[in-house]
Design a protein around this nucleic acid. Structure first.
Lengths: 305, 305
DNA sequence: TCCGGCTCATTCATTTTTGTATAGATGCTT
DNA sequence: AAGCATCTATACAAAAATGAATGAGCCGGA
């Protein structure tokens, strides 16, 4: 089995994404026969069938599905390389791609990045907001803001402090439905929580359980509003839909939310991480530093406010 | 700036590695003019000069050096993909690449992998022995044995226990030069240690210092035998050259080494890690499981012996 | 039912890429 | 200093990849 041309993987990826030779051809700027030939050749080189062809399009085989993450890594690496070359190497300019959770990206980063933009007008910032964490590994982003300690492996990582989570509600809600006096009272309230449980939520819930044994088990709580989006939860709390968990710093902003039962607290260790390869690139360095100082300020807002 | 053909990166990598168009051409199976044209085209597409050409070969520019890690990631991903396709997808066969420290790879893994090989004769095991840890990120290996906790990010990781380090010496050495009665005595002995200090060694030394304040600072010790290779240190201890640090399990093997000052102990948390993408591949699964159980046995040898 | 949308496959001319052969330049060894 | 190794650059012919055009099958809407 020979190593195929790397270009074939790019075509393969396009076909996987688009589901047909023709659509893939349009995406990559080739023609449909060429894309078809690329797939043929890749199948020959790898000695496996990749698609079952039909007039409606191509259906990927198990082999093709297994190959997809590799092709995506290749694409992410190439994109990362292009970013690395954007702008001059000795200036803070070009494209930087940051990944962060939705809530951080929407509520916290804009203020921080504003100053960076002002200082370096030729810097273009891409924000990839998602809670899936595999972005840095695949070079899908240059810099990541994380709530877990990153491995030291080939990463430059800086701890910026702990973001504290607490129970909050809008004053209007409390006025109407009363204020819970202890954790057990929460069972009587409209609670805002998660829809499906991801691995991260499960592990966090476990930590929470061991920290605060009084807190009712997540399974016992009757959630009255469920969404997987933290941002959706924050919006719901702000709209007075019920009691939910959010960052204490965010609760201080308008509309001001009231902190409930301050004995309920859950600190999230917060990190900024970057590929080691990028630390010599000024645009990444500058962005990294701005994020670190900005987030440090944000985290310590708790003390100031 | 257009995204260049991915193939050009492969040629680029070969030129970086070999240092000349001709040698690169031989490596990738092309001809020298073609390789030269590839580089030309890549330079045009990226809008940067990559090499200064000379009759002795090509000298990479800073840009080229900055691009190298990306090209290497591409190559590693492609190689990883090929491994993924080696052997049938529903059987434990094909190629698995494991990375581990030299000492684990030489002293511990062979016994563990022997049984695996017996059970699955069509399984080919590649061992990459090095203490640089960036292998998994770049898919340079499928499975890693690590002494640090890996990040959860897209990795399947299993803790197998703690490998204990202790001070050891060969009985012959002790007979001749006496047995130290406390940590301070070590200053009078021939100590076997590290040559240059890597980041890992520095951080480990710091941990060690805080665990055992009595232990003299590494800078104060007069090392009589220095090597960065842990394996070299083990060999030196076994040869009776002096007192050094090694895994207690290894000290029990022939030639049996004597443990000194058992109050000096340093547990290394040990992990087996694998890319999440690979957990469905039987050959990786089986190897992963074998490593976990094998290393668990090895770690608990302490209790048995 | 027919039409227009989509799909993939095939053919053939064109373009592009590649290899062969060769020239010129440098450095090392005899 | 000559010979032989290395290297890059260039010219031209051969091979390969590509695109345009076309045929044929499937599907949904008028």
């Amino acid at each position: 089995m020979n190593e195929p041309d790397w270009n074939l993987y790019r075509t393969f990826l396009a076909v996987m994404r688009k589901g047909s030779l023709s659509a893939a051809a349009r995406e990559v700027g080739l023609t449909q026969p060429t894309v078809g030939r690329h797939i043929d050749e890749l199948e020959v080189q790898l000695g496996r069938s990749l698609f079952t062809r039909s007039q409606q399009g191509l259906l990927p085989t198990d082999t093709a599905r297994a190959l997809l993450p590799f092709a995506e890594t290749l694409a992410a690496t190439s994109a990362s390389l292009m970013r690395q070359l954007s702008g001059r190497a000795d200036r803070v300019e070009g494209v930087v791609r940051i990944t962060a959770s939705e809530i951080i990206g929407v509520e916290v980063l804009p203020q921080i990045l504003r100053h960076l933009q002002w200082d370096y007008p030729d810097l273009t910032i891409e924000l990839s907001l998602s809670d899936s964490v595999e972005d840095l590994l695949r070079r899908e982003a240059d810099i990541a803001v994380r709530m877990t300690r990153p491995a030291q492996d080939a990463l430059v990582a800086r701890h910026v402090g702990e973001i504290e989570l607490g129970l909050h509600a809008h004053p209007d809600y409390l006025e109407r439905f009363g204020t819970p006096q202890n954790l057990a009272d929460l069972a009587q309230h409209s609670m805002i929580g998660f829809d499906r449980k991801t691995a991260f939520i499960r592990s966090t819930a476990k930590d929470m359980q061991s920290l605060m044994p009084d807190f009712p088990s997540l399974d016992d709580i009757e959630w009255s509003y469920r969404t997987d989006s933290n941002l959706g939860q924050l919006t719901a709390i702000r709209a007075g839909l019920g009691i939910g968990i959010c960052q204490v710093q965010l609760a201080r902003r308008a509309p001001t939310l009231q902190r409930l039962l301050p004995e309920f607290r859950f600190p999230l260790p917060t990190w900024v991480a970057m590929h080691e390869d990028l630390k010599t690139a000024p645009r990444c360095r500058a962005t990294f530093d701005a994020l670190v100082t900005g987030l440090r300020d944000y985290v310590t807002e708790a003390g100031r406010a």
